[in-house]
Simulated scan of single mutants.
Amino acid sequence: MNRSSLNRIRRTRTDAEPVTFDFAPMVDVVLLLLIFFFLTSNLSTSRSSVPLDLPRASSTVNDTPQIPTVSIDERGQIFLEDRQVTAAQLERALPELVKTSGGVVAVRADAKGQYGQVVTVIDVIKRAGGERLALGARQP
């Protein structure tokens, strides 16, 4: 290419319309990302409102929202989801929940709680058909 053809190319670029950037698709993508992160951060929190001081574990996995959660507080009180129940009430309520969750039940117990109550709850879960337990713990 010689100099005159380069000058002609440069002139045609300056004579053409200026290049513009359309921000609308970028705003849409950013908005969708924000919605995605808000929803996923909301789902990753525990559903139970029972205040517990969970023990620490070096490796933890977040609870799956579809599985029933049994909580045991410091005083040994049992909660199915957010409702306080006795061991007998838990045994009556769990079989249907265990069927829908595929045999998985989450157990959350206070670190200062009564170990005997935890064993009682695990025994009730096993009798109700629970095949797998997900034990709740805090990340270090």
Rank of each mutant, 00 (worst) to 15 (best):
R92M: 05
V98F: 03
G103I: 03
L97C: 01
V118P: 07
R132P: 03
E91D: 10
V107E: 08
E96T: 13
K126Q: 15
V104C: 00
A106T: 11
Q117D: 03
G130K: 10
K112I: 02
A109I: 05
L135M: 14
A137V: 09
G102Y: 00
V121D: 09
R127G: 06
Q114E: 10
R138W: 09
E96L: 08
A134T: 05
R92N: 13
R108D: 04
A137P: 15
E131T: 14
E131P: 05
A109S: 15
R138L: 09
G113I: 07
V118H: 05
R108A: 12
A106L: 05
A128I: 05
V119Y: 09
T120Y: 03
V105Q: 00
L133P: 06
R127E: 13
G116E: 13
A128H: 04
G129L: 11
V121H: 10
G129Q: 12
S101F: 01
V119E: 14
G102P: 08
R132N: 12
P95Q: 06
E131I: 04
G103P: 10
D123N: 15
T120R: 13
A109R: 15
V98I: 12
Q114P: 01
A128R: 03
G129E: 10
A137M: 13
I125R: 01
P95T: 04
A93M: 06
A134N: 07
G130N: 13
G129A: 08
V105G: 00
Q117Y: 02
A134F: 09
R92F: 07
V119Q: 13
K112R: 15
L97I: 00
D123W: 03
V98C: 05
L135P: 02
A109L: 05
D110L: 06
G113T: 10
K126P: 04
Q117N: 02
T100W: 03
A111R: 15
V121F: 09
V105E: 00
L135C: 05
D123F: 05
T120G: 01
R127K: 15
K99S: 07
G130Y: 11
K126Y: 12
K99C: 00
V104L: 13
A137I: 09
D110H: 08
G116K: 10
A93E: 13
G129T: 12
V124F: 08
G136D: 05
E91R: 12
R132V: 10
G130T: 12
R108F: 04
V107C: 07
R108W: 03
A134H: 14
T100E: 14
L97V: 01
K99F: 01
Y115L: 14
S101T: 03
K99Q: 13
K99G: 00
V98T: 07
A109Y: 14
Y115T: 15
R138Q: 11
R92D: 14
I122H: 02
V121K: 10
G103A: 06
D123Q: 12
V121A: 09
E91W: 01
A93C: 01
A109T: 12
G103Q: 07
